[in-house]
Design a protein around this nucleic acid. Structure first.
Lengths: 360, 360
DNA sequence: GTGAAAGCGCTAACAG
DNA sequence: CTGTTAGCGCTTTCAC
């Protein structure tokens, strides 16, 4: 059976025939290595152009063992946070001569394992992943990749069970600073929306470490930062002020509604993601409360919306693009053969103070 | 020279050896075709598992001619609009058994051409693209792909120079409806932020067609919808009320500032993208004006922010995920051999009326 | 039911 | 400087 309409793309062999030279000569000419006489060089180039030759990268990869492709695994490419990471990742990758194969996992570990297997099967040269695994969870799929000489770089979320370059932000410190700024403005009852997802929340501050172990690195760090700030100012931890629901906006609203109905409701809320913040705003509105008069809010992730809001929102801005770019550069370096110890890079998020926080 | 630490991934040949059978038998067993006796079947499976065998998809693609990979080309994966498309695209692709290779072009045609060439080189089975080309521009790179039997599907932006499945939204109709709703509320001076990017704006309504030809499909359609509404209500087109600047927030602000300073300033602004809308809001703020009291606004692209804003924003919500999913399904169908005429699919965007528009 | 052999398009020694 | 020769790992006839 003949394929398609017949217009099979020309192969290197055909170019060689057309130019009347051997295949190796064509490979050398087009590959720009070895040496070729000016004369034949021109003939080859001419023939290639005439035939509209374009190399089959698959075949090339087959023999070189390199695909010039990076695998990227995140929870959801539609989420602005990951989209930002992806954006920085994509440009840094391209700069380094790599393309990216992206897989979303919806934060499901099983999907993540499949994703990694798929990427490995497609022979990507390296993997950048924001793993859905808990910080101390075993990650055999990632170790598998490493064993197969496929470098893995962790982005946004660290993992203790594996030795790998890691690029994260200063979640804990910036959260402590943000919550601290709330406390310094007189707030003592501070809601924390979206602690780590768990159905076994910490009942007191001493419990935190245990909770944090089994959950997402970034979530855990933020909760720790929150507790740091509380302890530093001698404020007691109240488990009722921390939500552990799934990260959907309605859940954030539900959680805040619950806090607002407490006998001693929060006067400020720290929201750890964009949707947690909009969800918080909805809750206030439902109770007829306003920000910052009744409740101060600090959100996460800056955007042009945050500033034009009324009030403009105080947020923790994460350097998403920079994270993505750093991660890309890290894998690329590993692919290139860099053998130093795994580097743990912490990029700084910054607190942007605007009008959604007021003194109490 | 030995590669890596030696742990080369096991090949099919090794599995065959370990199981004491021929390679074809292993291929049949693992590939699930042909027939294999229950006995040998088990041995093969056991050997494969024991060695931790995973097929090299590259080699497989090499012989089958299929990579199970879709190429996706957009301006910027970090842009919420494209991120939304990508999200829908990714899940539909995965459902169909495909992975996606994503390339951002920053809206540059040269980058786009390179991107397509790269994808073709990597032998993707199909391409989904939101092209940076003007609606009537020649697109040799895309025709090239088609000639190479690589189906191309256009998403968000149609193109007249090529025959291809296309998935877009009802930009023109929804814009006409939105602008119409403004007119019906008494507005006659309506700013249009981000008409097609050009330095040769239409000077009157009759000029529009020409301007539209050379620019992005979606931008053109929206401008046409704007003019439709004006004409329908007998309002004269004023070129000073249409901005043609580059789509960055600061440019939107600048443009609106200019309109606001007109002797006869707009009482309403229609912003065709999320950033155009936030930019508009900034401009109002700078002039000490407020929305909707002084100026009504209709924006584009819904998000949780739009609703929690104060005032909540009236917007045109685009079905980004659905667009991405439809595009993915379209390419997949073509790859599977579907040969019908190119389909032009129009998905509906909807006007979500909230509080940023008021009667005049 | 199963194995041997050819070949996908390319690169990488190795001779000449 | 250039052509020949092997493969890369897999699928796919085609005999046995």
């Amino acid at each position: 059976m003949t394929r398609g309409d017949g217009h099979n793309p020309p192969t290197l062999t055909e170019v060689a025939a057309a130019a009347g030279v051997g295949r190796a000569t064509v490979a050398r000419t087009l590959g720009g290595y070895g040496s070729v006489s000016e004369h034949t060089r021109e003939r080859v180039l001419a023939a290639a152009k005439r035939l509209g030759y374009a190399p089959n990268e698959l075949a090339k990869s087959m023999t070189t063992g390199r695909t010039n492709t990076l695998g990227v695994v995140v929870a959801d490419v539609g989420n602005p946070f990951f989209a930002g990471i992806l954006s920085g990742l994509a440009s840094a990758a391209r700069e380094g001569g790599y393309d990216i194969l992206v897989i979303s996992t919806s934060e499901r570990l099983a999907e993540e394992q499949r994703a990694v297997a798929t990427l490995l099967g497609k022979q990507v040269d390296g993997i950048v992943i924001a793993s859905a695994a808990g910080r101390t969870d075993a990650v055999p799929h990632l170790q598998d990749a490493q064993r197969r000489d496929c470098p893995v770089v962790l982005v946004d979320r660290g993992l203790t069970a594996i030795q790998a370059d890691t690029v994260v932000t200063n979640n804990r410190a910036v959260t402590a600073a943000a919550v601290g700024s709330l406390i310094e403005r007189g707030h003592r009852r501070i809601g924390f929306v979206w602690g780590p997802v768990t159905n076994q929340p910490a009942t007191d501050a001493d419990d935190i470490a245990k909770v944090v172990d089994g959950t997402l690195w970034s979530d855990g760090e933020r909760l720790l930062g929150y507790v740091d700030a509380l302890e530093q100012h001698g404020i007691e931890f109240d488990t009722g002020l921390v939500s552990h629901s799934l990260p959907t906006e309605p859940q954030a609203t539900r959680a805040v509604l619950g806090m607002l109905d407490l006998a001693d409701p929060p006067t400020a809320v720290f929201a750890t993601e964009a949707d947690a913040m909009t969800g918080t705003l909805r809750a206030l509105r439902r109770r007829g409360l306003s920000c910052p008069e009744d409740v101060s809010i600090i959100g996460f992730d800056d955007s042009s919306w945050a500033e034009v809001m009324n009030p403009s929102m105080t947020v923790v801005a994460q350097p998403m693009q920079a994270m993505g770019a750093a991660a890309a550069r890290a894998v690329i370096a590993r692919i290139a053969g860099f053998e130093g110890d795994p580097a743990f890079t912490t990029l700084d998020s910054t607190l942007i103070e605007r009008a959604s926080v007021t003194r109490r």
